[in-house]
Design a protein around this nucleic acid. Structure first.
Lengths: 193, 193
DNA sequence: ACCTGAACACCGTTCAAGT
DNA sequence: ACCTGAACACCGTTCAAGT
């Protein structure tokens, strides 16, 4: 609105915010650096100072997505009371709800960008995975989850949730079956279907 | 190599073939209609006669992917002998192997293009889903899979396989754990982990 | 019926130059 | 240290015109 100082001062955060909104509302294809620069009121070359290229911005965006999903799952678990079954269900529901709210962002988070390189996982991804890992360990201690390598069980649980998210957001599973899918998945892991 | 007649005669199939190879070798970002036209030796506007736009070509490509994945899973099941556990394991392995061979294609198949519309599922997708559905029903009849709505179990199985594929191809799960993940998933469904 | 060539409106990326 | 403006090499899409 009002004209800005030459040095924006906040450009990196503004770009990420605009990118997140555009991704949610228009999808990845319509997300362009030039359009983000326009929305921020800077020249099309300005983002270069903060993100080496389009991919770097998308990577940063994916990392904020991991952090937010991890926070949401942690909050859901804490709000679910002491029962591990309920915690599992709450965490799974939070995951799938995130997918419905921010499908393209979740796609971005699991886009195969670093498959060739064993690059260090991002901070946000670590936060998500440890949130699920902690839940697994507590579930095993409480006897609500089968014993075995918690790392493997954690990967399988994340895979299941991610798969449900993909099926639902892609329309390959009917939207009204979302709840049933989550229930069935939790039942499968707690072995009381 | 030699110069072609004015009417290519085979352009649609040639474009799809080139697109599939480019997708596998270079990824979705590097797949452009103009480059495909160049490879086919036609003008950049020629593809328009066969695909309304880039998305239409990608949709057709996704459909061939579904058909091929369905065929591979069917073949894996048939080659696995009469034991339903072995059939499940073979089908799951075929799915994940497809993901490793053609990750970007699998991504495309589950990209959320038609999430807003209850469009008729493609022929290829139907073939894949019925292959899995048949396996589920047989498994339930043999007592190797838990009872209940086979449709729901089918969705959950596809979700689990797709989630494992996503984790592995994105590098979020270590590649050397792929086999263990598939084993654990099958064990979870057959309830003998 | 199928393809070409020019045109339009966009991109990402680079780089000298400005403040 | 951060941003601008011009430039380059690409896109997808459209449309009159060719065969």
């Amino acid at each position: 609105m009002a004209d800005r100082p030459y040095h924006h001062g906040n450009l990196r955060a503004v770009l990420l915010d605009a990118a997140e909104r555009t991704l949610r509302e228009q999808g990845l294809d319509r997300l362009s650096l030039r359009e983000l620069a326009r929305q921020a009121g800077v020249s099309h070359a300005a983002p270069r100072r903060h993100f080496a290229d389009r991919r770097a911005l998308l990577d940063a965006l994916a990392d904020t997505g991991f952090a937010r999903l991890g926070d949401r799952m942690r909050a859901a678990i804490e709000g679910a009371g002491p029962d591990v079954d309920a915690q599992l269900h709450a965490a799974a529901t939070a995951y799938v709800r995130f997918a419905i709210d921010d499908g393209p962002l979740l796609d971005l988070m699991f886009a195969n960008k670093n498959a060739d390189e064993a690059a260090a996982p991002s901070e946000g991804a670590l936060r998500l995975f440890t949130a699920v890992g902690d839940l697994i360990v507590r579930g095993q201690q409480a006897g609500a989850l089968p014993p075995g390598d918690p790392e493997r069980l954690r990967l399988l649980l994340v895979a299941t949730l991610q798969g449900i998210a993909t099926l639902v957001t892609s329309g390959r599973a009917p939207a009204e079956q979302t709840g049933a899918l989550v229930e069935d998945a939790v039942a499968l892991f707690t072995r009381r279907s």
